[in-house]
Design a protein around this nucleic acid. Structure first.
Length: 278
DNA sequence: ATGGCTGGATGATCCAGA
């Protein structure tokens, strides 16, 4: 099974690129971020025509997460219970929830499509929101791993460059979001909870994002901020991993590229393939 | 000059992205 994540930066302006890539790369399950639309606006037909069903969480023109899959999408969960909100409090004092997390189960594997808040600037309320969102999610992950032995992966745009090598020039980012120690500590909390970066651990190098401005892509001045973090059970299934840098080329690309892993079939399925003995 | 794109919503500019 081939599973990928991609911040598509508006699915409506990228639908042909995305479905073409899915078919060309024989992808079974794609986690998308920044679809930037509601369910009523989502281009379902293009995905159905390509052989994919879709589950999504989109509230407005901002954020938005989704899955496209050739296999049945089960146990769809919108958001996570402890996710903080952001914005203007309503009459009860509650902050609006944003569309940043979607969980599904595919063939017994628990997958999350995540769009971590940007943070905007150190000290900005959005930065505090980012850290709280990450801390609460890490606590949820600990619970999920205790509750279930099913392989689990967090996939998406984490908006954190965990290591200095994940940006082209650390000096440019001094005092910026994405590289601050609290953000990196928040990222390490997922590893402490038992998840592993299943792409980096297989020796795959390269950035996953290049700003549209300032010739960042031609200069290869990018950032590695999109990840697939798997539980031990998920990690054991991964047979290969890749970052699809070519998707930053050509007409109207997203500023992010897909990250893909291939999973071997689980042992239980292999049993089904044994010759029947009468 | 501290920018330089791009997308979405609203209606020539704003917000947001990282």
């Amino acid at each position: 099974m081939r599973v990928a994540t991609w911040n598509v930066n508006s699915i409506r302006s990228r639908v042909a690129r995305v479905t073409d890539w899915l078919v060309r790369e024989d992808v079974d399950v794609l986690a998308m971020q920044e679809i930037k639309c509601t369910e009523a606006q989502f281009p379902f037909d293009a995905f159905h025509d390509a052989g994919y069903e879709v589950a999504l969480h989109g509230l407005n023109q901002w954020n938005g997460v989704a899955f496209a899959s050739r296999l049945p999408l089960e146990e769809v969960q919108v958001g996570f219970a402890s996710a903080p909100g952001f914005g203007k409090a309503d009459a009860t004092g509650a902050l609006p929830q944003e569309a940043r997390a979607l969980g599904v189960t595919v063939d017994g594997i628990r997958l999350w499509s995540l769009y971590v808040p940007n943070g905007r600037a150190l000290g900005d309320p959005h930065y505090d929101y980012k850290l709280e969102w990450l801390a609460n999610l890490a606590a949820e992950v600990q619970g999920w791993l205790k509750q279930s032995d099913a392989p689990l992966a967090l996939m998406g745009d984490f908006n954190i460059a965990p290591l200095d090598i994940d940006v082209w020039d650390p000096n440019v980012f001094i005092g910026s979001t994405h590289v601050s120690e609290p953000e990196r500590e928040a990222f390490r909390a997922f590893e402490a909870a038992g998840l592993v970066d299943v792409v980096r651990s297989r020796g795959v190098d390269g950035y996953t994002y290049w700003d549209y401005k300032q010739l960042r892509f031609p200069r290869n001045e990018g950032m590695r901020i999109d990840f697939i973090l798997g539980s031990r059970g998920f990690d054991e299934l991964v047979t290969s991993a890749s970052i699809h840098r070519n998707e930053r080329k050509g007409d109207a690309p997203s500023d992010h590229v897909p990250v893909l892993v291939e999973l071997q079939r689980e042992a239980a399925e292999d049993d089904d393939d044994r010759p029947m003995i009468f």
